[in-house]
Design a protein around this nucleic acid. Structure first.
Length: 315
DNA sequence: GAGACGTCGCATTGAC
DNA sequence: GTCCATGCGA
DNA sequence: GTCTC
């Protein structure tokens, strides 16, 4: 895969981040969608551009195609340069800080003049952030914690590296007698070469016991959150693991939903709408009535589709 | 050309 | 303490 | 900004 694809995607993500700060909503999604398409492209973006078929990429229309062309020809994108010049803050670094999104970044700038991570770190250490609307003492310490984590954050893990971990967790949960089903979903189930995190789906009559077991597996660095149906933690090696517990009646729909890909879900959802249904992680509904949900096969069948293997759910 | 663009659980605040 | 609104993340 | 209707 040409390295250019990755660069183009990165640039589009950056444009999205800056637009996000300006309060744009749908353009942001549009740029991120285009970026994701290009990441997943099987051909080199340069070849696609040469044959003038950029607009055939999902999410790429006239405007973005033009910008990609510009970048491939000149190595720059004026649109992004302009956004950067206009922006008072360094979105690239600030947006990478956990728990900070566009709204909070904007507020930190307006109230404290925070433009980059150095300013942020200083403000947090001086306890200036607590007290701002929407921030408390806890938010402040989370920011500091996240700033300390920057290096270990965000890498993707080779599949081989996570298989033993996934299996360990799966076996541990499966051995519990309140657990009916366990599946490792997400890109792991789609058998991608790398995974960003591990997603685990469980059916159980006693979610709280499952949560408890999950939060006590070996090798936990820290937990990110825990609720009745959902928990997230980070292992010593930096891998994030998310757990979700659902009812048996929703198992199939949840499998589909959490296995993804996102594109695949969007496609299914559209097909569902066209047929007068609504599809979500809980099931396939006609009005308020669930017509399918306990198995994947059932949901696909009801949508008029043959079963699609997880590996083939990229689009 | 107009209108939609996913949706929801969780953490945290802040009001009561 | 409970309940709500908001932002974030997925 | 892009896609669908």
């Amino acid at each position: 895969m040409a390295a250019k694809n990755y660069q183009v995607a990165e640039i589009l993500y950056m444009v999205a981040d800056y637009l996000d700060l300006e309060g744009e909503e749908f353009k942001v999604r549009a740029y991120r969608r285009a970026a994701r398409s290009i990441e997943n492209l099987s051909q080199s973006i340069e070849d696609v551009a040469k044959s003038g078929k950029l607009q055939e990429i999902p999410g790429v229309g006239e405007a973005i195609a033009k910008k990609i062309d510009e970048f491939l020809r000149t190595g720059k994108m004026e649109h992004l340069e302009k956004l950067k010049r206009k922006s008072p803050v360094d979105m690239e670094s600030l947006n990478a800080v956990e728990s900070l999104g566009p709204k909070k970044i904007k507020l930190l700038y307006q109230r404290l003049g925070v433009r980059n991570v150095e300013h942020l770190s200083k403000a947090a250490k001086e306890a200036k952030i607590r007290g701002l609307p929407g921030f408390g003492e806890l938010s402040e310490s989370k920011i500091l914690q996240s700033l300390g984590n920057v290096s270990s954050n965000k890498r993707r893990f080779p599949r081989e590296e996570v298989v033993p971990i996934a299996e360990m967790i799966r076996k541990k949960l499966q051995s519990m007698n309140v657990v009916e089903k366990v599946e490792v979903v997400g890109s792991y189930r789609r058998k991608k070469e790398t995974v960003g995190d591990l997603d685990i789906l469980v059916v159980s009559s006693s979610p709280s016991e499952v949560m408890d077991a999950f939060l006590n597996i070996d090798g936990i660095d820290h937990t990110i959150g825990e609720g009745e149906k959902k928990a997230s933690l980070v292992l010593d090696n930096g891998l994030q693991v998310d757990l979700r517990v659902v009812g048996a009646e929703s198992y199939g729909a949840a499998l589909i939903y959490f296995t993804g890909s996102k594109y695949h879900n969007i496609r299914l959802r559209k097909i569902a709408i066209k047929k007068g249904y609504k599809l979500n992680e809980y099931g396939l509904f006609k009005g308020d009535e669930m017509v399918a949900g306990s198995t994947e096969e059932e949901v696909y069948r009801e949508l008029g589709l043959d079963y699609i293997d997880p590996e083939n759910r990229e689009e």
